[in-house]
Write a protein that binds this DNA or RNA. Structure first.
Lengths: 247, 247
DNA sequence: CGGAAAGTTGACGCGGGTCAAGGAATGTGG
DNA sequence: CCACATTCCTTGACCCGCGTCAACTTTCCG
């Protein structure tokens, strides 16, 4: 906290959008070298955030957006009566912080689920660069649209799907996201607790536990603590929407 | 359909952002006269959309945003197995169409619930005007943030709340929105069917019916078909979050 | 007026929440 | 290195909120 804010180490200097392995998933996608360098100018890369620490809290004033560089985060709402609703998990390359767009104050809190780093995009500077780099504006717009469409899918999941369909959807979505990041689509570590998964999916922890047990019995998965091996991805995908009940 | 597209009537000519009664809720908020006129230049005001007709359908290519001028719309996702999830209801002054931001194709469908009119903002022109009118950019950004925060609240509602809390939340939200539009906060017509309400809230139609009956018994509401009179708004608000179960 | 869509009400049953108890892994301090 | 606490996860027993099904009424609309 009291360390000089200007200090740079070799690690930090080396990181740039141009060299970042996430470029194809992240804001630089579709920009040319000069444009990426212009974006790079305004990106602030802070020190790592420890597991359990907040990137920001609900009602913090903040005009920045953040892109996850390494690690993972969860965003959640807290209600006055003390309980929470996880509204999203964020992997490297994903955008966080749009929730302050309305008033300049965050409407949810975002916490690191493991030691993580982000790239910060200060709002005013970002708007300015967007004006001179239209491709950046488009890319940002696209990420915003993605966020909204993802939220809509979650509304469908919470509004209509059974517990089994919810967990299957969740695993398939993680599988896809890991695979986009060049990790195995069939073997990965969950970065969140059963508690968080249940909360996110609108289910009790016990239900998550039971479903993992059942999926394992059915030879869909091998589960070892937080390590998931998907043994039959096609069948898992087929569980995402059930055979139609009526109509 | 075969009417000449250039035809204008006096009604249409008269409508401008400057004179529109929605201005304080809508994009022009906080803009000066000159800026509003610049915005006005690019707004396309089409003919009314009949009840049941679509403003757009899922997977339509579309780079415009829309602001509801009169009437009301619902947005919904359709799944491959044929059922639907309503993801939002839209009243005058509210923004519709962000769901095409990701790819330029809509990810949900939007249908008029009564004869309605919209103001269309063609994407490219809008970006252009935003560049010269920073206040417009901010206002748009704010509406985007509002949408995202609203979606998050819905996730909380669907993930955690009981049927009673859901319907109470819904009515309180409608009450607030009507009152912002200078309608009575305690007496209004529902523009949607019980079916749509149930779908939106993740409940069966029968549950909606029973809850309306119970709220009426409890002297919270007077319900006559789609006309709602809220008889005890404070108590209705108190139902929105229940007394905490544990922790 | 007739047929369809929308809404209401009752009976019934199940999916998943809640409670309780215990196990396994990780952290903490001595 | 061990004792102990804490958090995380699992499993079983129970039961209730709300979905489902069915029958009927009311309203809407051509």
């Amino acid at each position: 906290m009291s360390a000089p804010r200007q200090s740079l180490d070799i690690q930090t200097i080396k990181i740039s959008c141009e060299l970042c392995s996430l470029a194809e998933l992240c804001l630089p996608r579709g920009l040319n070298e000069a444009e990426v360098r212009e974006l790079d100018e305004i990106v602030k890369r802070g020190r790592p955030i420890q597991r359990g620490k907040h990137l920001y809290r609900m009602s913090d004033q903040d005009h920045s957006l953040y892109l996850v560089r390494t690690g993972s985060f969860k965003s959640y709402l807290s209600t006055d009566d003390g309980d929470e609703q996880v509204v999203g998990f964020h992997l490297p390359g994903e955008l966080v912080g749009l929730d302050a767009f309305e008033t300049g104050r965050h409407t949810c809190s975002t916490m690191a689920m493991e030691t993580s780093t982000v790239c910060e995009l200060p709002g005013e500077k970002l708007n300015h660069v967007c004006r001179s780099v239209p491709g950046l504006h488009n890319q940002l717009q696209s990420l915003i649209g993605k966020e909204i469409s993802a939220d809509h899918s979650m509304l469908l999941l919470l509004g209509k799907k059974s517990a089994e369909e919810r967990l299957a959807s969740f695993l398939v979505s993680l599988s896809r996201r890991f695979s986009e990041r060049s990790f195995s689509p069939v073997e990965f570590n969950l970065c969140m607790s059963r508690q968080d998964i249940g909360n996110y999916l609108g289910l009790a922890v016990e239900t998550i536990s039971r479903l993992f047990a059942r999926f394992q019995e059915d030879n869909l998965l091998a589960v070892d603590r937080r390590l998931i091996k998907i043994k039959d991805l096609p069948r898992l995908k087929s569980l995402v929407s059930r055979p139609t009940k009526k109509d």
